[in-house]
Computed example of a mutant assay.
Amino acid sequence: MSGFYLMHRGWRSNPVFKDEPCSEREAWLWLIEEAAYQQRRKRVGSTIVTVERGQIATSTRFIAEAWGWTHSKARRFLERLENEAMIGTATDTGVTVITLCNYERFQSPDQATDTPTGTEPTQDRHSTDTNENERNKGKEGKKERGGESAPVADASAAPSEPAPSPAGDLFADPPPNPTPPPAEPKPPKASRLDAGWTLPDEWRDWATEKGASPDAITREAEKFRDYWHAKAGADARKADWYATWRNWMRRSLDNPRSGDRHGSHRQNDRAADRPVHSNAWAAVAQRDIAGRA
């Protein structure tokens, strides 16, 4: 089966439906319904973001509550959609922006050209009724003029183009889109870590699921914040700070006793900067002392 059909926004709030957790298909419909149909600005928590057509600005925790799912189940489902190239995600300052792939392809009226199979009998009936009316008009005109009229061809004798659908036909094609489709959403730009940054709950939950203790997460969050606030240059700008945090915690969990990895790097750099000849003279002095003894 091919073609398209329209769904009214807000259909899920109809009281006829029981309030229960969403199925995976209903979760996908929820994403399509919540996606912006045009560019707009949206406030998520304390952050204001700009979403393009086909994008959703939200958080995984909010999605889980809307679907009636656990946070981990919602996260795994979104990861599966992303692996199947159905959505794209980007997270910055605790706000997740979901981009629906091929949104313009399936949501543009210009693409809805297929007519459902069930409309064919209705259209044929309209065509037959129209031809019958034409024959009746021809007979009435002949009686009024008292002369012969041109013969009316039988509609069933040869194929003809179907008559246009009357006004108000529910199966009429939608009007063409007068404006060209908008450009594809651009990826988020790199930026510095927000000056008032605090660890979002979603980031903390992810670290907890990976096995980090609450004290370790708090300690690493302070290191993370201080390091990136102090760092300068192009390397201090990231397009996805959530991914940067995940990589930070993975290194911390892989080396739990390494301490401050950046501080260790600085100590190794200072050791490498010491003159080699000073170590050599120290070795010679030790041999002389040993010989005298």
Rank of each mutant, 00 (worst) to 15 (best):
H8N: 09
W11F: 12
S13Y: 02
P15H: 04
E20D: 03
P21R: 10
E24S: 04
A27S: 15
W28S: 12
W28T: 15
K42G: 00
V44M: 05
V44A: 05
V44E: 15
G45T: 01
V49Y: 06
T50N: 10
T50M: 03
Q55V: 06
Q55M: 07
I56R: 07
A57D: 02
T58A: 14
S59Q: 12
R61L: 14
R61H: 09
T70Q: 06
K73M: 08
A74N: 04
A74L: 01
R75N: 15
F77L: 13
L78E: 04
E84I: 01
M86L: 15
V95R: 00
T99A: 08
C101N: 15
N102G: 06
Y103A: 11
T119E: 14
T122S: 06
S127R: 13
N131F: 11
G138A: 15
K139N: 04
K142C: 11
K143H: 02
V152E: 11
S156M: 07
P159N: 14
G168L: 12
N177M: 08
P180V: 02
P180A: 14
P181N: 08
A183P: 05
R204N: 06
W206V: 02
T218D: 15
E220I: 00
A221Y: 03
A221S: 09
E222K: 14
F224Y: 03
K231I: 01
A232S: 15
A232R: 11
G233N: 11
M249P: 03
D254A: 11
S258T: 03
S264L: 15
R270I: 01
V276E: 04
S278W: 12
N279G: 09
A285I: 08
Q286T: 09
R287V: 12
